[in-house]
Design a protein around this nucleic acid. Sequence first.
DNA 1: ATTTTCTACAACCATTTGGTTGTACGTTAG
DNA 2: CTAACGTACAACCAAATGGTTGTAGAAAAT
Lengths: 111, 111
Amino acid sequence: MVVENRPSDAEVDRIFRALADATRRDILRRTLDGQASVSQLAAAYDMSFAAVQKHVAVLEGAGLVTKEPAGRERIVRGNPVAVQRVRTLLDQYEQIWRARIARLDALLADD
Amino acid sequence: MVVENRPSDAEVDRIFRALADATRRDILRRTLDGQASVSQLAAAYDMSFAAVQKHVAVLEGAGLVTKEPAGRERIVRGNPVAVQRVRTLLDQYEQIWRARIARLDALLADD
DNA sequence: ATTTTCTACAACCATTTGGTTGTACGTTAG
DNA sequence: CTAACGTACAACCAAATGGTTGTAGAAAAT
């Protein structure tokens, strides 16, 4: 059974909003490439630990990343399923456009 | 010659930010499906004309939409090329994840 | 046992965002 | 010509964003 519930507007808002920041996109890249603790991530950026913590929270709130406790650390992992879902969303816009082109083609066809 | 210059961080910020609002996503859908004037768009939403005008401006700033004068109206059209570019961006995240999986597979292979 | 490390969270601040109303101006209709 | 329409733009406002510092607590290292 494929769950694949259609995401709500608010969820989509959160996903795109999370992606609308270069630091967060970089965190997503890193954690898709391999897991990292919050402090390891924080070391990579020229901002406070708390700021990076917030960025991770935004990504987590969007479902793009998961955070799992491991001793005193929190391990952050990129969520490939969520990324896939965003692509699916974008596909829908392309479908709309292709449908329009198809209609225009149909108009031009002299059958 | 394929132009396809890699978009800057700021450009990507603008694109995702533009998509992080349900009204703007709806405007994009409509204008990919078929052109519309700003006032036609405004009639579709429960907010002021000026608010819709701003949403269109955000989409235009992100390159997701173009605005062309036609008499006293401004015709808004969705830009399929920009949509395609966003998809390409998302693809890169998936590539990163697939590369990781490939590495893990290589580790497990006992050759 | 003490200190250090990693995290959580609150409080604060400047800037941006998403909305409003109001004014002004070019374009089309009567 | 005058009125109505479509747009642009400024000014304003509340809320959200992206950053900071500071405090506190749990886990690990010495």
